[in-house]
Design a protein around this nucleic acid. Structure first.
Lengths: 224, 224
DNA sequence: GTCGAAACTGACGATAATGTCAATATCGAC
DNA sequence: GTCGATATTGACATTATCGTCAGTTTCGAC
């Protein structure tokens, strides 16, 4: 037994890299196809075709499309969370946190259109009765992460539902604007327009929080 | 020729109603199935099954699923526009317009969950490369309608892109919040929470518009 | 260089969904 | 009551997609 195990004690580098590469290629291809046809209508055939591997290879790496989606969403959201974490590290008041939070989303969405599409598609999927399994958790974690950030800069204790509402408002506003801008702005550069609104959005959300908080206390003076 | 035409000069009431009814039943069934499985994964079989008619009947009324979707979206959005029109009729300043605009969306979304799902799904579909044809126009008209409303209460002339951005922000904020709330708020009543935020959203968007406008002029005093 | 394990392949059977169509039912007009 | 037009039906041919599997290739260890 031990002998058998010792036959492959550590994995080999070349083969290991090749495998990793295939895995990655499939993920990339899936991103592209998903952004074209949508998650539901994307065919495994096309994904493996575009990754330039046989269809069997797909099934060697992933149990099913559902599992691929799960992994993809998880990876996308954890990247988004990482971007947020990075950008918001030293925000200490609510105004600068909001600004950075929005900035992180702009940066993330602008960097890769496919990721935004996936982000939006899966949110859209989440409101269905029969949705892909396993994509709820990453979204919940993403919201929770934002809530933690908010909590750390808001002085007084807030009830959880209020925090959640604020987080929903922020993420909803940002992604909602972006998606509408994508379909609505015929010619102009979406990302540029988006970036130019960063300040306005932050101010606006600041105001939202101020108004939405049940407690009368005003820790910030968003209204100059 | 004229004789032939005169054979069916006006349609008969009973048969007419029956047909209309079937048409409506199919539309209703589609709404329900779409909200369960999503537009892509909804099967014609299931729609006609749920409408309690033969599959052939579906194809008698609609050329294809694509056409059904087109009609459905069109009807939903024109209903939304009608709601907006009704609620915003006598809003004369920007603050009250925003308030009514949000109110109209809340009312509309709350009234029928299926409609919200369809609204959101089709927006999600619109950002894909290969999306259903014919759903772009209703959305464009919806945005344009909101722009017209905005224009009528904003004193000074705004460039079209700025108006569009504001419209995107409003609709994005409202629907974005609602969708996140739907997946994020585990227990509490979404509609109630949403309604309680109506004022905060309006104030917030007022602030957004104020900040986003390039011109320095301040017609409104949103900051008390 | 040869052996075994891991990675890869694409043709194939099974399944599922689409859209068609010839036959049938319903209805109002005359 | 019968005729033509309109509406409805579900079995069917067609097409698309899935997931499997027996066989092949790649690679590192010895």
């Amino acid at each position: 037994m031990k002998n058998r195990l010792s036959k492959t004690p550590k994995r080999q580098s070349r083969q290991r890299r090749r495998t990793k590469n295939t895995h990655q290629k499939l993920l990339e291809a899936a991103r592209a196809v998903f952004a074209e046809k949508g998650m539901d209508l994307a065919r495994i055939d096309e994904i493996s075709e575009r990754a330039d591997v046989g269809k069997g290879t797909f099934y060697y790496h992933y149990k099913s499309k559902s599992q691929l989606i799960q992994e993809l969403i998880k990876s996308i959201l954890s990247e988004l969370v990482a971007t947020i974490e990075d950008k918001c590290r030293d925000a200490s008041d609510i105004q600068s946190l909001l600004y950075s939070l929005i900035g992180a989303h702009i940066e993330f969405f602008s960097k890769c259109w496919e990721d935004f599409v996936l982000y939006f598609q899966s949110r859209s999927d989440l409101i269905l009765q029969d949705c892909y399994i396993g994509i709820e958790t990453p979204f919940a974690e993403y919201l929770e992460f934002i809530e933690d950030l908010l909590e750390s800069v808001i002085k007084h204790k807030l009830p959880q539902p209020a925090l959640r509402r604020i987080a929903c408002a922020i993420t909803g506003f940002v992604s909602g604007y972006y998606s509408f801008a994508a379909i609505g702005s015929q010619d102009e550069n979406i990302d540029e327009a988006f970036a130019s609104l960063q300040g306005a959005m932050a101010a606006s959300l600041g105001r939202f929080i101020q108004e939405a908080l049940p407690s009368a206390e005003t820790s910030g003076n968003f209204c100059k």
